[in-house]
């Protein structure tokens, strides 16, 4: 158990170090001055330049420089945005939670809607219901996310006028950003009508969540269905049936868990797609998330921001993937057979 945890921690650390190294190398790969790419500060004169260079260790070799870079990353000194002049750590910590929030709701939707539908389709495999669900999910899965988001805006915002086009919360509500998660911030704010604010936030959330979630939901339905069909054909299901267990008993005791085990790693892969989609959709809905922020940084050629943004997003994806994999490792009893060998 401790060994497993230790191995995952080591894996996680190494991946993060590699990511940091890549982000460090970006400072040299981007056009322009290395010093400016690393800090975001343009030195006014030679003295200042020499002072910053000494601080960054620029006169020494790459490894020492990388060591200083890691040290600054850990200390929270991520440099300054060359466009806005604000500390990047602050900017990222405002933008990233917005994306995480949006992705969480979309993932929640995918799990709550997609997995039960997938189970249903898998249990009723090769029936009309199954074919309907399957073709629906293939259709949804094939939508390009930006197009789907635009259609949603067109239908629900412009034609039916049931949801706002863009933004996170109506400007009428003055909510201070404490955690970065809008729902929590609303609950923490004390001078507003909470009920109204939450309703407003939900109506803002509705379209982007559906736009991102629909595609992941469709993927979930397909993954789950396949896994359930696989499990239903295993000999132990036939054996359970021959023992006279009812379909419900078989489903709850033997199908659910066994079908879920292969889904979890695939779910981790879906997280990557989900966050990518979220970054695209944010731009369309002017959602103040990391995707929108990165896009602005690209327009303004804000290299320090790009370097840090890439590091933050990839660290997030890696963390989630490793957590899901660790969880899967902990609940799947048969996976330790590969470590110990079988009798």
């Amino acid at each position: 158990m401790i060994q497993v945890l230790l191995r995952y921690v080591v894996l996680f650390t190494i991946t993060l170090v590699v990511l940091c190294a890549m982000s460090f190398s970006l400072a040299y790969l981007f056009p322009g001055d290395v010093l400016e790419n690393l800090t975001g500060i343009s030195p006014q004169n030679e003295f200042q330049r020499a002072a910053i260079a000494r601080q960054l260790g620029l006169e020494q070799n790459y490894f020492v420089q990388f060591y200083y870079y890691l040290e600054r990353l850990l200390a929270g000194d991520w440099g300054y945005s060359s466009a806005s002049g604000l500390p990047l750590l602050e900017e990222v910590s405002v933008a990233l939670p917005a994306t995480i929030e949006l992705s969480t709701y979309a993932m929640f939707m995918a799990i709550v809607v997609g997995i039960p539908l997938g189970y249903y389709a898998g249990v009723k495999c090769y029936s009309t219901t199954d074919y309907t669900l399957n073709s629906l999910s293939i259709t949804t899965y094939s939508f390009p996310v930006f197009w789907f988001a635009l259609v949603l805006i067109l239908v629900f915002s412009l034609q039916l006028d049931v949801a706002p086009i863009s933004g996170r919360l109506s400007l009428l509500f003055d909510v201070e950003s404490v955690t970065g998660f809008i729902m929590i911030d609303i609950l923490l704010a004390d001078n507003i009508d909470h009920g109204l604010a939450i309703r407003d936030a939900l109506s803002h959330l509705f379209l982007p969540t559906v736009a991102i979630g629909a595609i992941t939901t469709a993927a979930m339905v397909r993954i789950t269905r396949r896994s359930v069909i696989d499990v239903m054909q295993r000999p132990y299901i036939a054996a359970a049936r021959s023992r006279g267990l009812s379909s419900w008993q078989i489903f709850f005791r033997h199908v659910i868990r066994n079908a879920l085990l292969p889904i979890l790693p695939l779910m981790a892969i879906q997280i990557t797609t989900l966050i990518t989609n979220a970054m695209i959709v944010e731009t369309l809905f002017s959602w103040p998330g990391i995707g929108n922020w990165l896009l602005q940084a690209i327009y303004q050629q804000d290299y320090p921001a790009l370097r840090v943004g890439m590091l933050a997003v990839s660290a997030l994806v890696v963390t989630l993937t490793i957590i899901v994999d660790l969880f899967n490792r902990l609940i799947d009893p048969s996976r330790d057979r590969f470590e110990r060998g079988t009798i």
């Binding site: 000999p235 036939a238 048969s334």
Partner: peptide
């Protein structure tokens, strides 16, 4: 099947639920 007939299958490793 539950009360009267019981079956022992060929391969225990695949006929028992691994999880």
């Amino acid at each position: 099947m539950r009360r009267d007939i019981a079956v022992v299958f060929q391969n225990p490793q695949t006929s028992l639920d691994p999880s």
